[in-house]
């Protein structure tokens, strides 16, 4: 705790807002790459190790993981108001862009060209998500149990079409208990 305090740089609310605006506006197709570049390489607010810790925490918590990272980093450097400044920078711009797109969609979405182009892009979006899962799955331990839980979660939601709430509620306690037992 002492150690992290000692090299924690002073960062203003405005700097937080601007840094997360930059991350947000440059992050097409995945914000994590840009967040690391800005926070670790450009601003040097976090070390590589601290960044990995914060990101893991963000992934563990519900919601978009880079948004969680934004809240944690904003809060670490500027308390509640720092978190608000960081989130405003990170979500404000995309919100406006998306609403602009919504307006265009409502006006031109019915055009056959726009629909054809969007259909092709939808197939790409599905591919991006599939590729992300494949990349993430490489961190799973080589053991039957995690793969079984993963497979059951996939089957319940993706094949059977059951509600998420019940699938998570049925699997999570067993999975956490098993992971708990496994520790020495």
């Amino acid at each position: 705790m002492k150690q992290t305090e000692s090299h924690k740089p002073k960062v203003s609310r405005l700097e937080l807002f601007l840094a997360f605006s930059r991350i947000s506006l440059s992050s097409f197709g995945g914000a994590i790459f840009w967040a690391r570049r800005e926070l670790v390489e450009r601003q040097r607010w976090l070390t590589e190790r601290e960044f990995v810790d914060v990101f893991t925490l963000g992934q563990l918590l519900p919601g978009p993981n880079v948004l969680n990272l934004t809240v944690i980093v904003g809060h670490r450097f500027g308390g509640w108001t720092g978190a608000v400044a960081a989130v405003a920078g990170f979500l404000g711009w995309p919100c406006l862009v998306v609403i602009g797109m919504g307006m265009l969609y409502q006006r031109y979405g019915a055009l056959p060209q726009a629909q054809h182009a969007l259909a092709g892009m939808s197939s790409v979006a599905a591919g991006l998500l599939l590729a992300t899962v494949i990349k993430l799955a490489t961190v799973l331990p080589r053991h039957w149990r995690p793969w079984l839980f993963g497979l059951l979660a996939f089957a319940g939601v993706g094949v059977m079409g059951w509600p998420l709430f019940w699938v998570i509620g049925a699997l999570a306690p067993w999975a956490i208990f098993a992971a708990w037992k496994e520790q020495d």
Partner: peptide
């Protein structure tokens, strides 16, 4: 414990 469930759900989404 939650990591594999998470991955299974993302795969379902995909």
């Amino acid at each position: 414990g939650l990591m594999p469930i998470t991955l299974g759900l993302v795969f379902a989404s995909a």
